[in-house]
Amino acid sequence: MPYIYKDDISIADAAIEVYSDSLEGIFIDSGKALTNTMVDNLESVDIKKEVEFKVESKEIDMLLFEFLEQLVIEKDANQLIFSEFKINIKELDGKYELYAVAKGEHIDYKKHELCADVKAVTLHKFSLTKEDSRWKATMILDI
């Protein structure tokens, strides 16, 4: 699994470390980690609906923050959760633009093994770094 839950970082909430060889990959796996925090069996989330959105930020870590925040908003506003993502990131005039297609379906209590609700992405220890050629994201999701 490209992401691991860290017991020693947060007691009440979900602390996750995500690793990927590509920038797009780290966004995709972070999105999956967010959904997996709410749904134990990620593979049970079928692709029935696609949502397209764009977020931007001057900083790459805040771009990830904005991306994840959109997923939390979709969950609350439209009861949608996602298991697959298409990500396209561009750097233009000192800022990053992200175009995302999030693929998933409506929350189904009978089908999805639901766990804790992710209510917010926090900035506590939030980071996105590149070490050698590998990307690493650390996030604490508020439960």
Partner: peptide, 18 residues
């Protein structure tokens, strides 16, 4: 407006976690 969108359907709900 986003905050309102998130809360609109949630009046009268317990939530999860603790």
């Amino acid at each position: 407006d986003v905050a309102i969108k998130r809360g609109l359907k949630q009046i009268g709900t317990l939530g999860s976690g603790n």
